[in-house]
Design a protein around this nucleic acid. Structure first.
Lengths: 250, 250
DNA sequence: CGTCGTTCTTGATCCAGATCAAGGGTACGC
DNA sequence: GCGTACCCTTGATCTGGATCAAGAACGACG
């Protein structure tokens, strides 16, 4: 039903552009088009303003803090983190983004990117000029709505992260959330590959890397997950969900 | 220059509606109108879709969690908090909103309010039907832009809160941020009245009320602020800013 | 195929801030 | 004017997770 994102990467971009209906079915903006009833002209407009960029190798910056805000990036393949580094050199991971998700929305207001975006594995994007896509959004109410929804969704995500919760609840919520997001993109719901290190997970969850490691070990020992390195399988969703419930606001 | 928000409250709403140019100069959407070059027709459209509501007495709910999302609320007067209460009864204050700011944007994606909004003192609002204002935004690019900016701004606010910072840095950032927001609305920049209790500040900053109290005492003893109950004066902005710098991302 | 650097795990100790406890201040209703 | 209920402050103790330390596993590369 939903095409696997990596398929998209393998496509020849030019051939892709010609195939209006099948164009990036995993894209964050595809919903906007389908709502507009597969309006061919609308799709063509989206095609014209999108730029396919990548690959960015692991560790490469997609944009940097203080760069002037020009574009938002929809992930086509790979994984990215956004990270704010404060004056004392502490890394704050603001978010991880998987195929189908959009990076850079937090730069609209300040008009400069407030964080770095760094590829965690080779990554490909659709880059949308923000001024162009918002101009198009005035003609496509579905697209405007989609942008509002993306922003509001990110807002919810961030405030969940801001709550004060026990370390094990945070880690459980991290796993559940990531698994659900992968599932929403058509990946298997129970197995996941973590593109990020324990330290990066810790920076995201505001924990120490040692704490994340200990908790994952504990989850494994108590049969909640199976894990080997960065491969994780969720064995017992129910108790993990229970742990994560307050974090995820359910 | 900027009219004091409370003035607006004192106006007779109907007379207000007749005075297109002076209509709610502190309103979060006034920028959209001025960008549109004081387009009279546009202002009239905004007038038509806005509803003046209030007063809500201290402790009254403006909306509740799980209510279907219909409208966003621009604060005309008073102060509101948004608060998420988890299954264990822990209160998480998500934000405080003062005149000129907009509440409810985090409900767009889930389509239900994810939190309660509660007045901290008698409060008045402009209520905008979200479907109506987003429909209008397709005709007024400035208004659309303003909505994007409001969402993105809130995103930045929330991720600053999510960072892990020492308690004194959080409290300093809270004071500086609130003072700047009041200043942006034309209030005196150094004196501020806290509409919220210590416990509410603590719930917002993810600290214990005792910790907030101790830190305010320490700030007072070291001459950074003067305070008496909920009246606070910032005496030494520089060292407070220095403390808050990492939190505020500067 | 071994070496080196990185990442992950596990153990021992420490500390910032939570929690528990108690007293004093303040505002409001009667 | 006097309860009464909350809010704020201050002190004493406790604890979850950070930090420090040291191996162990892994991956990249010559």
């Amino acid at each position: 039903m939903v095409e696997r994102p990596y398929r998209c990467v393998e496509h020849d971009p030019i051939a892709d552009d010609g195939d209006a209906v099948r164009f990036c079915s995993t894209c964050a903006f595809s919903g906007a088009c389908t709502q507009a009833g597969y309006d061919k002209a609308a799709l063509r407009d989206l095609h014209v303003l999108v730029e396919h960029v990548g690959p960015y190798q692991a560790g490469a910056h997609v944009f940097r803090r203080r760069d002037p805000f020009r574009a938002i990036y929809a992930v086509r393949g790979g994984t990215v983190k956004t990270v704010a580094i404060d004056a004392d050199g502490n890394e704050q991971v603001l978010g991880f983004y998987i195929p189908g998700e959009v990076v850079g929305l937090n730069a609209i207001y300040p008009e400069h990117y407030p964080c770095d975006a760094v590829a965690l594995e080779p990554a490909y994007f659709c880059r949308f000029s923000f001024s162009a896509i918002s101009a198009l959004a005035t003609r496509l109410p579905g697209l405007q709505q989609q942008l509002f929804r993306l922003l509001s969704k990110e807002l919810g995500m961030t405030s969940r992260l801001a709550g004060d919760h026990a370390a094990d609840a945070r880690v459980a919520a991290f796993l559940i959330d990531l698994a659900e997001r992968y599932a929403a993109q058509g990946f298997p719901a129970r197995r996941l590959h973590l593109a990020m290190s324990r330290a990066e997970i810790a920076d995201y969850l505001r924990l120490a890397a040692e704490t994340v490691s200990r908790i994952l070990t504990r989850f494994r020992d108590s049969g909640l997950i199976a894990s080997e390195g960065r491969e994780v399988e969720i064995l017992a969703p129910a108790p993990l969900n229970e742990l994560a419930r307050n974090v995820l606001g359910r």
